[in-house]
Simulated scan of single mutants.
Amino acid sequence: MRHAETVTFGGSALDRAGEIRSNPEAIGAALKDPDARAILFWRGKPLIATARPAHLARLPLDHPVLADAGDDIILLGREDGAARFAYDLSSWQPEDLDEAALGGFLDPSEQRHPALGEVMAFAELRRVMTWLSPRDAELAATGRAMFSWHRSHGFCAACGHRSDMAQAGWQRVCPACKAAHFPRTDPVVIMLITQGNSVLMGRSPGWPARMYSLLVSFVEPGETLEAAVRREVFEEAGVRVGQVSYLSSQPWPFPASLMFGCAGEALSRDISIDPVEIEDALWVSREDMMEIFAGNHASILPARKGAIAHFLLENWLADRLD
């Protein structure tokens, strides 16, 4: 697919500086570089400079706000030869924090640290991802995914001992049994299933009213992407799929997925949903999808802008899947 890497979180060609992760001297020098910058996160939310055009904030490493950061930092990569480090401020407690507003399908809340004023805020990445440049989006997605992995994998899976961060944040090592652990990414297929002039759309329980999207599935052990597409479409919608092809991928750090966008040709239009898996499924014509994208459809909303489902459907409508 010619436009594959224009998907959100893709295509910025970030220099990840992998060759210095295991070199403490090089990391120390990078931390002393006056051009190095800190990228901050609070409970997975990146710090955004909110004045339009909004962008990912980059702070000098001697900024006072870093006094509230945890000790563990992660080397995200380099920009123009200078390092970019991720810092976690999750231990900071904002005043009048509304916990109920956090972690929902779309968290609209913003948290502002007193050392940063009103021009910067921690914001939910899914809400602001389309505001960001490709480079800002990749840095934000990487930092969010890495801190999420460290929070959920703090203990050795081999012996249960508390593990330590290593490799500039890209590894955890158990001091007891010496086992090494690496960041986890879960493969997920998302399927653009078509038959003639129509595409198969589904809806999960608990989604906002009128929201439909492409079907998705985790890839099971021992399974190819193609097999996962055929299995899940049949399990969820009762539709048999023939030829399957790869289109594009998207890192999706909510919390740790790599979405593989695939096209599939349905062998029939008969739908029989599994109500445990999905709430509804239906065929949508190209003409109706154009109305949906224009916001004119009475019963279906467009897929979330910035997500690979929206990207694939947009390219399908524009006949740009080759």
Rank of each mutant, 00 (worst) to 15 (best):
V119I: 07
H150D: 08
R37K: 15
W149Y: 14
F155W: 09
F122T: 00
S90Y: 04
I39R: 02
F155K: 07
R144G: 02
A141S: 15
L61C: 11
P53Y: 12
F147D: 00
A145D: 10
R84Y: 03
P114S: 06
A158E: 14
E110H: 08
D33S: 15
R52G: 10
R37P: 03
A54V: 04
D98F: 09
E138F: 01
R58P: 02
V119Q: 14
A49W: 08
D107S: 12
P46K: 03
I74L: 13
E95V: 13
D68I: 03
L116K: 02
M146W: 07
L61S: 11
F147P: 00
D62F: 10
S90E: 05
A36R: 05
S148E: 12
G143Q: 04
G77V: 04
W92P: 00
H113E: 04
A86N: 05
A140N: 03
G81I: 12
Q93G: 03
V65I: 11
A137Q: 06
F105P: 06
L40Y: 03
D68P: 02
D107V: 07
P134I: 08
P64N: 08
W42M: 02
E124Y: 14
G143Y: 03
I39N: 01
A115T: 04
L40E: 03
A137D: 06
E138D: 09
R112H: 10
L116D: 04
P134Y: 07
G160K: 06
A145S: 13
W149S: 03
A69F: 02
G117Y: 08
R37T: 14
I73M: 12
L75M: 06
D33A: 12
W131N: 09
R78P: 02
L89D: 00
I73Y: 08
T142M: 13
L97G: 05
V128I: 15
V119A: 14
A140D: 01
A86L: 06
Q93H: 10
A158D: 12
